[in-house]
Design a protein around this nucleic acid. Sequence first.
DNA 1: AAAATGTTTTTTCACGATAAAAGACATTAT
DNA 2: ATAATGTCTTTTATCGTGAAAAAACATTTT
Lengths: 300, 300
Amino acid sequence: MSKSNNVYKDAFNRCLRLLDETKSLPSEPELGTLLGVSRTTVRSILSRMEETGLIAWNKRSKTVLRVPKPEDFFPEEETDSLAEIIERSFMRRLLAEGAEAGMQINELELAREIGVGTTSVREFLIRFSRFGLIEKRRNSHWVLKGFTRAFALELTEIREMFELRSAAAFVALPQESAVWADLEGLEEEHRQLASEIATRFNEFSELDERFHRLIHRASHNRFIVDFYDVIAMIFHYHYQWNKAEERQRNAVAVQEHLAYIAALKSRDPGKVDAACRKHLKSARQTLLSSIPAGRQVQPA
Amino acid sequence: MSKSNNVYKDAFNRCLRLLDETKSLPSEPELGTLLGVSRTTVRSILSRMEETGLIAWNKRSKTVLRVPKPEDFFPEEETDSLAEIIERSFMRRLLAEGAEAGMQINELELAREIGVGTTSVREFLIRFSRFGLIEKRRNSHWVLKGFTRAFALELTEIREMFELRSAAAFVALPQESAVWADLEGLEEEHRQLASEIATRFNEFSELDERFHRLIHRASHNRFIVDFYDVIAMIFHYHYQWNKAEERQRNAVAVQEHLAYIAALKSRDPGKVDAACRKHLKSARQTLLSSIPAGRQVQPA
DNA sequence: AAAATGTTTTTTCACGATAAAAGACATTAT
DNA sequence: ATAATGTCTTTTATCGTGAAAAAACATTTT
């Protein structure tokens, strides 16, 4: 089973949604750009759509014959890439009870448990190692460093350093820069969310990421921009395991963001610094409070 | 040829040197710790030493029969790990003429050129990607970002941020901390080197790395400590390709280090900050001046 | 002639297999 | 009883292989 065709399946599903919206299909290369896949994959998609009677396809003419039904879609779980599957399994283990710092990580065992080849697991671990949660012993196993309080403090220390610098760079950007329009858009989204926070509070995490990434990008430094991947990963799982007071926390954070945005728009470095610090401080508090009790202690 | 036995060969060579120095061999587990390999490998080494008449081996008794000859050693090139081989080949290509930013990197081609499997090349590229010089296009090739002036500036920006913070943390360390003794030792090594700089200037780069790593470790932040890997890698190759004025540059750097060390020992944060900034500024200049002319321009 | 479609080649991704190396367990010597 | 040696098992490192997906090339359509 050398390689799953999840790219095809995922693109197929997205293409179905597109078809449902527009009731028509563009040329093959255009569709490829739209879906982010090669023409080879586009043609596989079109072939199947033809077979299942969704469209009539003859060279350039693509006629939509019927509206997609739920059965036309591939099951969601078949559209995930192997990397996503491995990450999920690994994080579940990591956040489960009994995942103590210092523990060994066994590639073969992980691979067997998840039901994938060892190569994929190895590659995942190498990629994952940059998050600072695991470490490799040369010619030997990986060691889990654990999601400890120390980890959270080290992570937030860097985050604060980077974001303060990025925010300072942000206000120095010329008025013509596209970021100001982006900021305007994000402000509007924040206002919308704030007004319906009671019901939509769970949409915050996605907005949060987009907002902070916009700021980090102003640094024009690849190391700062890339570091946000570490933060995003941690916060992604943080939001999954810590649901306590979520609504209240997010309501506060939205207001902090709005104050932060106002400071940025004022272009007053002092105000920006203050608003940024305030928000980062409460973000750190939130993260620290979510660390499971058993993981508070760091090994010697 | 599924796996080379370079671990064994390298450990064997190191064991020969050990034997030459001490004229005796400890127990198997002890030897394993000493060489950083498992007992399995230790036993392979001892077997060969017995076969080639270097020692007589019967259970606990290991008698040295003769002094190692040059022919007893495995050739140096057989002791390199695959990762090292790939890294060297890759860097040679990267620093060679014609390695323009934006260029595609082909795993298969690289693997064929170096004469290794694609898996090893893939793993290398994933590991290497954290240095910020290459980037992966999803489901597709890698793109070379190039060793440009922009890269050097982004790298040094982070370096300066991290080192200033680490140096500040350093002076706050209690007098009992072992770092002060380490610093003392490094100071002495610097003095030695300074007095013989005319002939030993090429030993500076190794000392430089140890000195800066000591300072970065004071941050007690894994992200800062790990980032030094990026700097070390760049400087490692930088020292290889930029030999212009090397003696003079290193002489200056040694003096800057000595001033920096004096500032640290004074425990005066202001002095430390000044000495650190001064040194980092000239380090940045050196790095910038070494960027080949053809790579100064960054693509849009 | 520009842009699409049709066809072929190349590359990436993932697996199972195998030797090297590590690690675990059993036995023996001090 | 501790620490070594002897033996066996498991894991890691690496390759070759094959299907999925991308990319390149050739041909047709507008």
